[in-house]
Write a protein that binds this DNA or RNA. Structure first.
Length: 300
DNA sequence: ACTGTACCCTGTAGGC
DNA sequence: TGCCTACAGGGTACAG
């Protein structure tokens, strides 16, 4: 679910709630998500202060005063929920008393896998029905060489995204442009929604071969420049709107993102193309096992 | 090297 | 109402 704009929105909320606070209690409700939780997870988090909350690609990084970094990937349905702490009411049948975050039924809320309380009085809950998310605890000094970060491509909203970098990586590649952009080693942080939207804005077909982004000798061409501008614009607008809420995604305060209102193609199969000079209809097809939405008449 | 498929897991929507 | 299928913002392990 969450792509760069959604993860960035979560990051900002967590930063506000966590920076300068200590993690006072941690309740772990199961031993694994997609992968097992790190060894001695609760012990290594307990009492730690949060120095910073950053993002790389779709990964959240919570920097602790122990010089370890809690890395969280939200997978498809992972989300954080922030709620004020009200003392004295247990939320679980076992473990520690952390707050009043209870379900109306009186049972544990479904899929709340990690619940922690900060010294600032906030209860932070990680909820993830499909459990495709995961958490790691890594040494700050060596984090960039860890397997999940080492091969990641350029950050699209940072200074590293230039048409030349895109074109060089695309040169000679026979893979579909859609798949090329979904590959986190080429550009980090795009997912199904924003790849579809960026290709539409750049008027490029998702079926086009990636190598057509490169001119002679792997140089940028007008297509790669157009695409780069489109990627930046769509991500910046989506971040400003708090991301896209289609099904599961929520901002940590429980509210929805707004960018889904501005999707030109994603989830608009059968509807009219929004380009004023185009009379096409948005189509859906499958590429690499995922839905691609596009306008066949103006994306070439 | 590169590409496509299956799979991890749960929930929901739509057809019958 | 239920039962069945298809599908979902991600990533990885395979087979070819």
């Amino acid at each position: 679910m969450p792509e760069l704009p959604e993860v960035e929105t979560v990051r900002a909320s967590l930063a506000h709630a966590l920076i300068g606070q200590r993690l006072e209690t941690i309740e772990l409700r199961r031993s694994d998500l997609r992968f097992p939780f790190p060894e001695r997870f609760v012990e290594r988090l307990s009492g730690r202060a949060v120095k910073a909350v950053t993002r790389r690609a779709k990964y959240l990084r919570i920097h602790l005063d122990s010089d370890e970094i809690l890395v969280v990937h939200l997978g498809m349905t992972g989300r954080f929920i922030l709620a004020p702490f009200e003392a004295g009411v247990p939320i679980a049948g076992r473990g520690e008393i952390v707050g009043t975050y209870t379900h109306e039924s009186g049972r544990l809320p479904q899929h709340d896998h990690v619940v922690l309380r900060t010294s600032g009085g906030t209860v932070v809950t990680y909820n993830d029905p499909r459990r495709f998310g995961y958490m790691l605890l890594l040494d700050a000094a060596t984090i960039e060489s860890h397997a999940v970060f080492r091969l990641l491509g350029v950050e699209p909203l940072g200074p590293g995204l230039e048409a030349s970098a895109l074109s060089e990586r695309a040169a000679g590649r026979r893979t579909d442009l859609k798949a090329f952009l979904m590959d986190q080693r080429n550009i980090a942080g795009l997912g199904n929604i924003y790849v579809c939207e960026a290709l539409f804005r750049a008027s490029l077909s998702p079926k086009r071969k990636a190598r057509t982004l490169a001119g002679r000798g792997g140089c940028p061409n007008d297509r790669s420049v157009r695409l780069l501008v489109a990627i930046r614009e769509v991500l910046e607008e989506a971040v400003a709107a708090g991301g896209s809420t289609l099904r599961d995604y929520r901002k940590p305060d429980g509210s929805s993102g707004a960018f889904q209102e501005r999707h030109d193609v994603y989830d608009r199969e059968g509807e009219r193309c929004r380009r004023p000079d185009c009379s096409g209809t948005i189509r859906r097809m499958t590429q690499a096992g995922r839905s691609t939405f596009y306008c066949p008449s103006c994306q070439k």
